Simulated assay, not measured.
Amino acid sequence: MTNKNLLVLVVLMSVLGVSVSQNLDLNFYKNRCPDAEAIVRRITDQYVSHQPSLAAALLRLHFHDCFVRGCDGSVLLKSPNKDAERDALPSLSLRGYQVVDAAKTALEKKCPGVVSCADVLALVARDAVLAINGPGWAVPLGRRDGRFSRKSEVNLPSPFTGIAALKQNFSDKGLTSKDLVVLSAGHTIGISNCGLINRRIYNFTGKGDFDTSMKPSYVRELKRRCKPTDFTSSVEMDPGNVKTFDSNYFNIVAQRKGLFSSDSALLDDPETKSYIDTQVATAGSSFNEDFSESMVNLGFVEILTGNKGEIRKRCSSVNKDSSV
């Protein structure tokens, strides 16, 4: 962790204090599993150091979890009938389950039945970003694991979504327009595929045209990368900067080079556009702190605490004594 990122983490911890709202606590495992965070960080570092692209995958995995049934680890559950969240079309490209499973296995050996999979995933997402020198944030802990995971309930913000729907999606989860634009910048380390932009660059309105909200020179660049029948080749969401977690995403969007309609849509709202303009003008001076704050906000979405849910023994399946 760099000194800058450590400072952000310390500042956030001082702002949050030891105890936080909604029954989560920064010291939740202090007595029952004091090494929990250290164990998760060690294992996450091991995986991400060998495969840095996992940082984006693990961040996305946490986001998917929180936006469906809340941050309850339900995205981690497997179903023999292939009808769990991870089996839904938007989730088929999710990766990084093995990192969460490895961390959970280590925790079960050290302090069995104590640390929830939902908390492991929240910690892994933070530690994966730290592992590539991104910002850190204090993770309030004490979530419990959900017992249900349904493919039919997966209704995530789409890359094709306009700004009004995006703001509503986030508002429904108790998140602000600022959270929307800040968390969108997670795309700074992400990759996608030609299939998700094919229509946007070749046949946007059904007339063989492209989306005019995109810079024409960027459309030409994408067409060189993605031929009309290519739906599988990878495309960087932050061209030329995909390995570095920083505020360059906002420069890309401001230049009308956002890969998805949902990226470009951030310019269509005065509040989100103003934030982008400020980050561009100040070289992302507040981005690390803002991203950290929004990730903490995300981690509170529809959580289970107290006697709700359970502490799974394995992240991919509910406990045998669960009533599902």
Results as ranks from 00 to 15, higher is better:
residue 142 G to M: 03
residue 122 A to N: 11
residue 143 R to K: 13
residue 88 A to D: 13
residue 89 L to R: 11
residue 108 E to P: 07
residue 47 Y to N: 11
residue 112 P to N: 07
residue 56 A to K: 03
residue 57 A to P: 00
residue 100 V to D: 10
residue 40 V to L: 07
residue 125 A to V: 02
residue 58 L to V: 11
residue 127 D to F: 15
residue 78 K to Q: 14
residue 45 D to T: 10
residue 31 N to C: 01
residue 66 C to I: 05
residue 119 D to A: 10
residue 75 V to E: 08
residue 149 S to L: 03
residue 146 G to D: 06
residue 111 C to R: 11
residue 114 V to H: 06
residue 116 S to R: 12
residue 69 R to K: 14
residue 119 D to I: 08
residue 78 K to C: 03
residue 30 K to E: 13
residue 142 G to S: 04
residue 48 V to L: 06
residue 73 G to R: 06
residue 97 Y to C: 00
residue 59 L to R: 10
residue 130 L to D: 13
residue 103 A to N: 10
residue 70 G to N: 09
residue 78 K to V: 04
residue 87 D to L: 03
residue 61 L to H: 02
residue 88 A to P: 04
residue 141 L to F: 11
residue 146 G to T: 09
residue 74 S to L: 01
residue 127 D to E: 15
residue 101 D to F: 14
residue 39 I to R: 09
residue 70 G to H: 10
residue 145 D to F: 12
residue 73 G to W: 02
residue 112 P to C: 08
residue 129 V to Q: 13
residue 122 A to Q: 08
residue 111 C to I: 12
residue 95 R to P: 00
residue 154 V to C: 05
residue 132 I to D: 10
residue 66 C to V: 02
residue 35 D to S: 15
residue 93 S to P: 00
residue 41 R to I: 01
residue 94 L to D: 14
residue 105 T to L: 12
residue 42 R to P: 00
residue 59 L to Y: 14
residue 60 R to V: 06
residue 130 L to I: 03
residue 34 P to C: 00
residue 155 N to W: 01
residue 105 T to C: 00
residue 60 R to A: 11
residue 149 S to P: 09
residue 107 L to H: 05
residue 96 G to L: 09
residue 92 L to Y: 06
residue 147 R to H: 03
residue 140 P to W: 11
residue 94 L to R: 07
residue 135 P to Q: 04
residue 153 E to V: 01
residue 29 Y to A: 07
residue 67 F to T: 06
residue 72 D to S: 14
residue 148 F to C: 02
residue 36 A to R: 02
residue 113 G to N: 12
residue 67 F to R: 04
residue 55 A to Y: 05
residue 134 G to W: 12
residue 124 V to C: 14
residue 69 R to Q: 14
residue 153 E to C: 00
residue 100 V to Q: 06
residue 125 A to M: 07
residue 128 A to F: 12
residue 52 P to L: 06
residue 49 S to G: 00
residue 128 A to Y: 06
residue 121 L to H: 09
residue 96 G to R: 03
residue 102 A to F: 04
residue 87 D to M: 08
residue 76 L to A: 03
residue 60 R to F: 01
residue 81 N to C: 01
residue 145 D to W: 07
residue 56 A to S: 14
residue 100 V to Y: 04
residue 60 R to E: 13
residue 91 S to K: 05
residue 155 N to R: 11
residue 90 P to T: 07
residue 31 N to Y: 07
residue 49 S to L: 01
residue 53 S to F: 01
residue 67 F to Y: 13
residue 136 G to W: 04
residue 49 S to P: 00
residue 94 L to Q: 13
residue 42 R to M: 07
residue 37 E to D: 13
residue 59 L to H: 06
residue 116 S to N: 11
residue 126 R to G: 03
residue 43 I to V: 13
residue 81 N to G: 03
residue 60 R to H: 14
residue 138 A to F: 01
residue 117 C to N: 06
residue 110 K to N: 15
residue 32 R to T: 15
residue 45 D to A: 10
residue 85 E to Q: 15
residue 88 A to N: 09
residue 73 G to Q: 05
residue 47 Y to W: 14
residue 55 A to I: 02
residue 151 K to S: 01
residue 71 C to A: 14
residue 141 L to R: 08
residue 121 L to T: 12
residue 121 L to N: 12
residue 35 D to K: 15
residue 80 P to L: 09
residue 29 Y to K: 09
residue 90 P to V: 05
residue 98 Q to G: 15
residue 46 Q to F: 12
residue 115 V to F: 11
residue 107 L to G: 05
residue 118 A to C: 10
residue 40 V to Q: 03
residue 74 S to V: 02
residue 94 L to A: 10
residue 98 Q to T: 01
residue 29 Y to E: 09
residue 97 Y to L: 13
residue 153 E to Y: 05
